[in-house]
């Protein structure tokens, strides 16, 4: 028979076990990607240029090749890839804050974007803050909370959850289960290509469903006078405040994606609409959407290693040329 005393005793034992479980998870998750990135940022204090963004930057930015592209006239630059897959503007802002704090020589930031990353608000439910997005739980949860949610309840709850390693790190542990689950799910089906970001075909789903929808979204953003995403705004504002030059780079896309989306007046008008918004941070916009041929892509979205070399070299060269020409003023567009 369960008495009140026994029940409370069970609760106390459960609390103790839960504490142990958290300690165990904390130990096991030391090698998770967000923590590795944090360590990498802190161990590269000499960095002069950092690239921030999601998997497009992680896969596409090759620091060595960027430096080679930059150093055509003999000068040198130490570049750093702070891109991380499955992250959004809030995580980019937090990574940017780490860079401003621990890489004091970083005088330039490259911010890679695609589609509506600069104006989509991206707020969502607590359950979406997962896997690599747990940067928000690891780095500065108090800062992140203000940009992540639509409801105040999650916002207040979030910093408390950040103290629970099982919540913070559940993504890195789940990733192992998910791999088995995918293997299980693929049984009996033709083999599908995948890379370390996931199944290649899945990235098609990230695209807006039709060209018409995409163009409508471009027009909608202008009609609604959408501001720069609050987290990106905060990142750029702080970087600008530190005297850091900001390069906003439209990341390379496949011919198919460009045909369906970027090669339209709607997208061009949307980009023109963004220019004055970005001018307040003295940012330079670089359109690299068509820099890399399709065969150098690893999947419908990400550059392969050769594509990363091609893109990074050209980007290094382009930024160097820009800086040689003049010191960047209000937002301008370069190709």
């Amino acid at each position: 028979m369960m008495t009140a005393r026994r029940f409370l005793g069970s609760l106390v034992v459960l609390a103790g076990l839960f504490l142990l479980f958290n300690l165990l998870v904390h130990q096991l998750s030391r090698g998770s990607l967000p923590r590795k990135l944090l360590r990498a940022i802190r161990s590269a204090p000499d960095t002069e240029l950092a690239a921030i963004g999601n998997s497009l930057v992680e896969a596409g930015f090759n620091p060595g090749e960027f430096s080679r592209g930059w150093s055509q006239d003999g000068s040198n630059i130490r570049a750093f890839n702070a891109g991380l897959g499955s992250t959004g503007p809030v995580e980019h802002y937090l990574v940017g804050r780490q860079i401003l704090r621990y890489q004091p020589h970083s005088q330039r930031i490259v911010y890679g974007y695609f589609d509506f990353q600069l104006t989509d608000d991206g707020r969502g439910p607590l359950s979406e803050v997962f896997a690599n997005r747990s940067i928000s739980l690891i780095y500065e949860p108090d800062v992140a909370a203000g940009y992540l949610f639509t409801n105040g309840w999650s916002e207040r709850f979030f910093p408390w959850l950040a103290r629970l390693p099982v919540f913070v790190e559940r993504g890195s542990i789940w990733a192992k289960v998910e791999r088995q689950r995918r293997w299980f799910g693929d049984l009996g089906l033709p083999r599908s290509d995948s890379n370390h970001f996931g199944r290649a075909e899945d990235f098609r789903y990230l695209e807006t469903s039709t060209p018409e929808d995409f163009q409508e979204k471009c027009r909608g953003a202008q009609a609604q006078r959408r501001p720069i995403t609050p987290a990106v705004d905060a990142l750029f504002r702080e970087a600008d405040g530190h005297g850091v030059r900001i390069y906003v780079v439209e990341m390379p896309m496949t011919r198919r994606h460009r045909d369906r989306t970027y090669d339209s007046d709607a997208w061009r008008n949307y980009n023109d609409y963004l220019l004055p918004l970005l001018a307040q941070y003295h940012a330079v916009v670089i359109s690299a959407g068509d820099w890399v041929p399709d065969e150098l892509f690893a999947d419908p979205l990400h550059l392969g290693p050769a594509g990363a070399v091609e893109f990074s070299h050209r980007l290094g060269s382009a930024i160097r040329t820009l800086e040689n020409q003049r010191s960047p003023g209000p937002a301008e567009k370069a190709r």
Partner: peptide, 8 residues
């Protein structure tokens, strides 16, 4: 019997 109810 709240203890039993809560436990179950």
């Amino acid at each position: 019997d709240w203890a039993n109810d809560f436990e179950r």
